[in-house]
Amino acid sequence: MGKFLSLILILSGLLAGGAMYYLQIYGFYEDVELQPGRDVMLVPLGEETAKPIRYSGFEAIDAGSSPIRYRACFRTDLTPEALAQVFTLSEQKEPRNAPGWFDCFDAAAIGAALANGHAQSFLSAKNISYGVDRIVAVTDDGRGYVWHELNDCGQKAYDGTVVGEECPPRPEAGENN
């Protein structure tokens, strides 16, 4: 009887581990529905409302389980230098990893391009979800990437630090932000 119970426990653990792995890597992600002309937008200098830029080959994934799971890739004929003259730069230089199966988004390569000056990051949307900004990076060769990153208010809110007056009010529990 002990061997049978051990076998059941081992199989249950393997099944639960396999299910958890699948759900984290594949299960919650969905393809993002294209919104031509609105998929890639940047905030102009001195303004708050984002404006679209020219792009092609857009593909993106997202998951409703977390506001920071959004990842996207695209191509553009605009250079980082030209964009930097018109749009707000971002200090974000380390994109979050994407699932391995989303081939176009290599966070390590994007981070290296940002670090060595072969790419520039821009603000796309402030507080797209409470405490989360959308960041767009464009490389010298016209590849572009989009991800969500916690801003200062989001980092404070999620680590338990007092948020303070400079942050917008946090949405109520029933709101979808």
Score class of each variant (00 low, 15 high):
Tyr26Arg: 01
Ala82Pro: 08
Ile25Cys: 02
Ile61Leu: 08
Ile135Cys: 09
Val138His: 07
Tyr70Trp: 06
Lys156Gln: 05
Gly46Met: 10
Cys73Lys: 06
Lys51Ser: 15
Gly2Glu: 04
Ile25Glu: 11
Ala60Asp: 06
Gln92Trp: 02
Leu23Asp: 07
Thr49Glu: 07
Val138Thr: 09
Ser124Asp: 10
Gly144Cys: 07
Ala157Lys: 14
Ile53Met: 09
Asn116Ala: 01
Phe122Cys: 10
Phe122Tyr: 11
Arg75Cys: 03
Cys167Met: 09
Ser124Met: 12
Ala137Thr: 05
Leu78Ser: 13
Pro168Lys: 05
Arg69Thr: 15
Gly154Ile: 07
Gly131Asn: 07
Gly111Arg: 00
Tyr70Gly: 02
Leu5Lys: 03
Lys3Arg: 15
Phe74Val: 00
Leu7Val: 11
Asn151Ile: 03
Asp159Val: 14
Val136Asp: 08
Pro99Cys: 04
Leu123Glu: 14
Thr88Trp: 00
Asn97Phe: 01
Ala137Arg: 00
Thr161Cys: 04
Glu30Ala: 11
Ala72Tyr: 14
Glu30Ser: 08
Ala82Leu: 14
Asp133Phe: 09
Asn97Asp: 13
Asn151Thr: 07
Arg170Pro: 09
Pro67Ser: 14
Phe74Trp: 05
Tyr21Lys: 03
Ala84Phe: 08
Ile25Tyr: 07
Ala113Pro: 01
Gln92His: 05
Gln35Ser: 13
Ala107Ile: 00
Pro95His: 00
Leu78Val: 06
Ser56Met: 11
Leu78Gly: 05
Pro168Asn: 02
Ala112Gly: 05
Val40Asp: 03
Thr49Asp: 05
Arg170His: 11
Arg69His: 13
Gly100Pro: 02
Glu91Pro: 04
Leu11Asp: 01
Phe102Gln: 03
Ile110Trp: 01
Asp39Phe: 12
Tyr26Gln: 00
Tyr26Ser: 00
Pro95Gln: 01
Ser6Asp: 04
Ala125Met: 09
Met41Ala: 13
Cys104Ala: 04
Glu47Trp: 10
Ala98Val: 04
Leu15Thr: 15
Val146Trp: 14
Ile8Tyr: 03
Ala119Ile: 02
Asp159Lys: 15
Gly174Pro: 04
Met1Gln: 07
Phe58Lys: 02
Gln120Ser: 13
Met1Tyr: 10
Gly111Leu: 00
Glu149Val: 09
Leu23Trp: 12
Ala84Gln: 11
Pro44Leu: 08
Met20Pro: 01
Ala19Trp: 12
Ser90Lys: 04
Gly131Thr: 10
Asn176Met: 12
Leu14Arg: 04
Cys73Thr: 13
Ser56Gly: 13
Phe87Tyr: 15
Gly174His: 11
Val162Tyr: 03
Leu34Asn: 09
Ala115Glu: 03
Val132Phe: 14
Met1Pro: 07
Ser129Glu: 14
Ser129Pro: 04
Asp62Thr: 06
Glu81Gly: 05
Asp133Asn: 14
Pro67Cys: 12
Val163Thr: 08
